[in-house]
Amino acid sequence: MQLFSRIFLAAALISAPLSTQVFAKDAKPAAATEAKTFTAFAAASMKNALDEANNAYTAKTNNKITASYAASSALAKQLEQGAPADVFISADTAWMDYAIKNKSVNPDTRVDLLGNSIVLIAPKDSKITNVEIKQGFDLAKLAGDGKITTGDVKAVPVGKYAKAALEKLGVWASVEPKMAMAENVRAALALVSRGEAVLGIVYSTDAKVDPGVKIVGTFPADSHPAIIYPVAATANAKEGTADYLNFLKSSAAKATFEKYGFSYLVKPNS
């Protein structure tokens, strides 16, 4: 009888940890199932800052953000054609308005999140320095035989801001023949960084992340429309997207965006 009791007790002790292990294994997939992946369509100029913010969001929630960066114009048209995304962040209000008009985004979720400025840049070893950007300044002469690059002035936000500023300052007609249009602001930045353009007009935040360029002048804020980055959930956003949007409006996200030079336009939540 005692022998039987000892055998039964030993079997119970051996089986106890085994059942605990099975329970732990069963719990793991449940946690993994709760994690979600959201897709953000964002203006090219946001890449460095948004990548860092997204990493912080993932560390906090275990949810993953897949970001697709391009010109706001290209992203808005992709959404119109049914491209799957959960969030759209535009570098201007016009392309967000376009997305709302085409019912690509949920207008009730729209928030003007960030601000920026545009600057004149040159390759880091350029002799051009300290350009006073004012009414009638001779930008064409400054460029010499070289090209001035920015985003496509007909569609890409940075190009639209650049053209508006150059028109208001009275120099667009003289520089238009020298303009080299790029598909987005990062492409324009690369042209200057590689020395393929002698000057470029980009956002100040872009100039700060490329060691191959230097800022030689800043466009007056009143020379162009206010640079605003609105954000909104798309019309077909996954359940839970609101949590990501709330994170973008948090104090943690504010610190990240300001670190990269963006101005933060909303009162951060806790």
Rank of each mutant, 00 (worst) to 15 (best):
Q2I: 15
L3V: 13
A16D: 03
S19N: 06
V22I: 15
F23Q: 13
A24F: 14
K28N: 12
P29L: 12
A31T: 11
E34A: 14
K36N: 08
F38S: 06
F38I: 10
A40K: 10
A44G: 02
S45Q: 08
K47D: 00
A53N: 04
A56Q: 14
T66E: 13
S73G: 07
L75A: 05
K77E: 08
Q78V: 01
G82I: 05
G82H: 03
A83E: 15
V87G: 00
I89T: 05
S90W: 02
S90E: 05
A91D: 10
M96A: 09
D97K: 14
D97G: 09
I100W: 07
K103G: 00
V105Y: 05
D108H: 05
T109P: 02
R110M: 11
G115I: 02
L120M: 07
F137K: 14
D138C: 12
D138Y: 15
A140G: 10
D145G: 06
I148F: 01
T150Q: 03
T150Y: 02
V153I: 10
P157R: 00
G159D: 00
G159N: 04
K163W: 03
K168W: 05
W172K: 06
A173L: 06
E176W: 06
E176F: 08
A182G: 11
L191F: 08
V192N: 10
E196R: 11
E196F: 13
L199Q: 02
V202R: 06
T205V: 14
D206Y: 05
A207T: 04
V213T: 07
I215P: 07
I215H: 06
V216R: 13
H224R: 12
I227Q: 01
I228G: 03
Y229M: 03
P230Q: 01
T234P: 00
G240Q: 08
S250V: 07
A252W: 07
E258N: 09
Y260T: 04
K267A: 10
P268V: 08
N269E: 04
S270M: 06
